[in-house]
Design a protein around this nucleic acid. Sequence first.
DNA 1: TGTCTTATCAACATGATGTTGATAATCTAA
DNA 2: TTAGATTATCAACATCATGTTGATAAGACA
Lengths: 204, 204
Amino acid sequence: MSKKKIDPRVLRTRQLLRDALVELIREQGYEKITVQDITSRATLNRATFYLHYQDKLDLLTQSTDEILNELVEGIHSSFDGKVELDFQMNTPNEKFIFLFEQILLNAKLYKVFLTEKNMPHFTSRMMEVLTGFISEGMMAMEPDDHKLTVPREFAERYFSAAYLGVIVWWLENDMPYTPKFMATQLMRITVQGPYAENPFIKLK
Amino acid sequence: MSKKKIDPRVLRTRQLLRDALVELIREQGYEKITVQDITSRATLNRATFYLHYQDKLDLLTQSTDEILNELVEGIHSSFDGKVELDFQMNTPNEKFIFLFEQILLNAKLYKVFLTEKNMPHFTSRMMEVLTGFISEGMMAMEPDDHKLTVPREFAERYFSAAYLGVIVWWLENDMPYTPKFMATQLMRITVQGPYAENPFIKLK
DNA sequence: TGTCTTATCAACATGATGTTGATAATCTAA
DNA sequence: TTAGATTATCAACATCATGTTGATAAGACA
């Protein structure tokens, strides 16, 4: 009901605007772009822009929301209830492999949106997405707050930030490893920490 | 030699502009601010702004650099060579306590710059600062790359992103814990992971 | 004190913004 | 395939922010 048929011209126009935005951000940074620049690149009239979006920021916000909603829905529809989100040494979680694979598919776009300085909204939304998976996984592993070493929110933020940081690093370096390798490394560092002979674990 | 006497009026003007910027970002977000807004708030003429900065972004960039340079120099001068940056269970590293204390002192400013959406430059510079400490600590602990479970750069990014995420969480929630508590939690989750009975460590 | 530096102020050209109304193109459904 | 509805185009507009300039005032410093 909520999805009436959308005029294909509208979809086309919005896609053109979004593509133009991504290109221009990469070329000259988000700040310097004007609505005029975007519509010129998209071969549309400037007034047309205002039929679809309030301003530059609105275009960016809506685009990021659409992209990340697709990501989340893709994961949900592929794994709906089938895969437990547990953390095990050297066995990368399939959802995380899928995550890196999806990002790889749209690497050009993710790279621009995640690694350009001054990209409002996208990074925080991406963080929310990751927090979703991580809090889900943590609740599955340990629903009892008392058995956590640190406040739950603290841990969730710690891991989502760490994972996002790694994703950004991967993109900045032009994806030097496969999705499976990345997911494996994440499991390993999460479980074992960074040192092979784990000098951390010397409990008193 | 590089620090000639700076006219106090210049310092005053720059301080006024920086303060105005921080206030306005908090009130209406970085995007919507104009140079006119900043100079009005600072009770300065708009032309005066251009005697000191190229544009809004230049003011922001220079301000963040100054703030973070002060932070780094403060830590260096307080601990110069005295404190090893090692990671031990339940014993928070003094540099990290100091870090949280410094942020607490300028919490209003850090909160705006780190948690407002769309804050160019500051977050990435802050990340660099953290990466500095972390890579220093990791090299002290384990200079041999072969004994790492994951690529060194991967681990450095993982931890700096995680730590920055936790700092942002702390600020967003209006510093609900003391710097010492925060530093302790960071050590604990880094060393032991999030679970008290560490179910992660079930090696095959 | 006088000199140098900086701030002030008004004014200007330029360019981006957001809106409007008339017109053309394109889609959808009968 | 055609008619009616939707959307895009285009030119024009007032408004606002920008960046700069030149003349003048105020403040710092030796």
